[in-house]
């Protein structure tokens, strides 16, 4: 995966750029095939996807920040284990919060909250960027990647829930008598939806890159362009 340069000056442009890259040109799910497991597992419903996206935003930004703050204290040989311990501590916080305040959601996500620990997106960012960059830049980098992840997941979830179940966030959105495409709600449908989104985004962004850069909003609209 590409290693981005450290942000040295930190003007407004350097603040926005990592976030923009995370959603667009450096998108973790579509460009680097990171974090695919949960991209498939939780996208059956929009509500679980929103919670998963928010949890990952928190864990990714905070673990990048903490790893970056501790980067001079962690010996090189044990850095992977140190990073995993930081990440799992943050995941425990999320898990306990969900159990305490959103118990039903915690039940329906099941072990997938715990599996944020092994989400390669987070370890990818801490290992490739946060371990040798300044705290603020790392925080933005983690936030941007996680945001890109959340946007793609939300696109897939909107497709899968609206077509596969005829609802959005539990409310019926399809016209009366709509026959849900059961395939999209089932496991193979998750693979097809992600494959289709990756295909469409690549087809469109390939043209956009030729015309001079891929903009942040293109992924979001492409995600729904699959409908």
């Amino acid at each position: 995966m590409g290693i981005k340069n450290a942000c040295s000056g930190c003007g407004t442009k350097e603040w926005v750029q990592p976030v923009k890259d995370g959603i667009g040109s450096e998108n973790p799910v579509l460009r680097h095939a990171l974090g695919i497991c949960s991209a498939l597992a939780v996208t059956g419903f929009v509500s679980t996807t929103l919670v998963m996206g928010a949890s990952l935003l928190f864990v990714a930004s905070m673990s990048c920040l903490l790893v970056s703050l501790m980067r001079n204290l962690i010996p090189h040989q044990v850095r992977l284990i140190a990073q995993m311990l930081i990440v799992s501590t943050l995941v425990i916080i999320v898990h306990l919060y969900l159990q305490a305040y959103h118990f039903e959601m915690s039940r329906s996500l099941g072990p997938y909250v715990g599996l944020i620990i092994t989400n390669c997106l987070i370890l990818g960012r801490t290992e490739a960027f946060a371990i040798r960059n300044r705290p603020l830049a790392s925080l933005l980098d983690g936030f941007g990647s996680a945001l890109g992840y959340a946007v793609v997941l939300l696109g897939i979830a909107v497709i899968r829930e609206s077509l596969g179940r005829g609802t959005l966030l539990g409310y019926p959105v399809m016209p009366e008598g709509y026959m849900p495409v059961m395939l999209l709600a089932s496991a193979p449908g998750a693979f097809f939806a992600l494959g289709a989104v990756a295909w469409i985004v690549k087809a469109i962004s390939g043209n956009a890159e030729a015309a001079g850069g891929c903009c942040a909003s293109s992924v979001g609209s492409n995600g729904q362009g699959g409908v």
Partner: peptide, 20 residues
Amino acid sequence: PLRGLGITMIITGLMAMAFM
């Protein structure tokens, strides 16, 4: 545009259907 992630996911989907 389908090379890489796209085609891999679609093949995996077909495989998942077979296992279903």
